[in-house]
């Protein structure tokens, strides 16, 4: 035998929209009511309360000495409790970024979103959070951003902050060192 597929009846057949419209393929739809209320817990609860005050909070592990963000009440490496809170800076560096032209359901968006992992100043090296960077002008935003680019948090006005990660509108490139190397 040289090829296993020779005598096989392959199953797996595509259906077409017309077949459904003409009643040849029967389909059924349903919508689960998947609504949730997730408890923030202590660490993220305090983290978000910090956002409301315009502060980014991290934690320090007394075992490995890492200063971590997002904060957590136990260190997943040392597996011990954490109780020391640290106020971090509201500046950081882009670790990596993307320029995204589609939404989750694959709709096209004209003004791209720029998600990035941002390493926060004051935290240990490599400690980043996911957030959005303000889009630079021009057609190819990726040519204007670099890994290592320094950025600063742009907060919503105090009255509009609600204790959410979106209390930071986005991160703005700090002028003068946009091309800083890594």
């Amino acid at each position: 035998m040289t090829e296993v597929a020779q005598n096989v009846k392959w199953i797996g057949e595509n259906w077409k929209k017309e077949e459904v419209l003409h009643g040849k393929v029967f389909t059924f739809s349903d919508r689960p009511q998947a609504r949730y209320a997730w408890d923030t817990g202590e660490a993220i609860g305090r983290y978000l309360a910090g956002f409301k005050q315009g502060k980014i909070l991290g934690v320090r592990c007394r075992g490995c000495q890492r200063i971590m963000v997002p904060p957590r009440i136990f260190c997943e490496l040392c597996f011990r409790d954490i109780s020391e809170w640290v106020t971090l800076k509201e500046t950081g560096r882009i670790r990596t970024f993307s320029v995204c032209y589609v939404t989750w359901d694959m709709k096209r968006i004209r003004k791209p979103q720029i998600p990035a992992v941002i390493e926060i100043d004051g935290a240990s090296e490599g400690m980043g959070i996911l957030h959005l960077v303000e889009a630079p002008r021009g057609d190819k935003p990726w040519e204007r951003l670099r890994a290592g680019t320094r950025v600063q948090a742009v907060w919503k006005p105090k009255g509009l902050r609600r204790g959410a990660v979106t209390d930071i509108r986005f991160w703005r490139v700090l002028t003068g060192n946009a091309n800083a190397g890594h």
Binding site: T96, F97, W104, P115
Partner: peptide, 27 residues
């Protein structure tokens, strides 16, 4: 798969995470 409180409010999609990793790898 994204954290409901610290990440999903930013409106992420799965492509982000791959694009971010790919860019980091390239860099």
């Amino acid at each position: 798969i994204f954290d409901h409180t610290t990440e999903r409010p930013l409106g992420p999609n799965l492509l982000w995470i791959f694009a971010l990793e790919m860019n980091r790898y390239m860099n």
